[in-house]
Amino acid sequence: MTDTAAGAVNRKNTATAEQMDFKTKEGIWKVLVIACGLLMIILPLAIGAFLIYRGGATFTKYGHSVLKFLFSSNWNPADDMNGGGHVGAAVYIVGSLVTCGLALLISVPFSMAAAIFMTEIAPKTGNKILRPAVEIFVGIPSVVYGWIGLTILVPFIRKIFNLNQGFSVLAAGIVLAVMIFPSITTLSADAIRSVPISARKAAYGLGATRWQVISGIVVPAAQPGILTGIILGLARAFGEALAVAMVIGKTRSLPKSILSPTTNLTSAIASDMGGAMEGGEYNAALWSMALLLFIISLLFIFLVHFVAMKGAERNKK
């Protein structure tokens, strides 16, 4: 890397040899850079292709219908190559939806408050203390969240609600809420910060209180950015595997209340993939779940772009 100069290898060489050497270097460099850029396209495509290939087997090789996979709760895939079992993944899907929904309900109000605090109320303390703190939260590994959930939250819930066991939708929802809180907060804070000062000044100039400015001007103006933060937080919650698996209880039944245990897509993949026979129906069904996760994360990205587009349109008007 240090020896970058043209024809630095041997300046005494003939001019043409120097030029050749120089040209090769330029060529190699360009090929490398473009290859690395291309790799970023190839990787997600390859991942998608493999998921379709393996996950598709449920519907092609084993002949199950997509609707049954999505909406039936009859889950009993055969762990062999003959198939003939049932692959209704509705319980897992509902489990994922319910826990993520709960996580959003818990974390969005907190995130909004924290984001507003560090941008509008006390920007100095916010930037110096709260922001770094939130960013540190992002870095805490999910298994640590799961482990604390398992050793503190689950016994706590059992005790407080007087249950047989504390593994529950609630526990999963809280763990996920803590996990996605930082992402939503930082993205919302960025969105709020980018609202022009002039809008605020105008409102203050008319005698509005700070809360009126925040709720009436700033938050509505920052709405698309905040929504993006929420969607990305939701995406993270959907894809989280181990932390949820540790506290959800892994019981294959639809949850009756937020205190009952259930299961979700990621825990099923995390715990069952190792035991399922390579290429069997069970294995294929789990791959279909992974494919579903992939499609959902694509959907989230699409949503983010859609929201951004709408926001841009709105600003133009």
């Binding site: 990787l43 493999f50 998921l51 990305l232 959907f238 894809g239 990621t266 992939f294 772009h305």
Partner: peptide
């Protein structure tokens, strides 16, 4: 398209990447 690909890559659930 490249940007969308990178976004996709960054928001992929890590378990999916693990399976891949």
């Amino acid at each position: 398209f490249l940007r969308i690909c990178i976004e996709t890559l960054s928001s992929l659930p890590s378990i999916v990447v693990g399976l891949f």
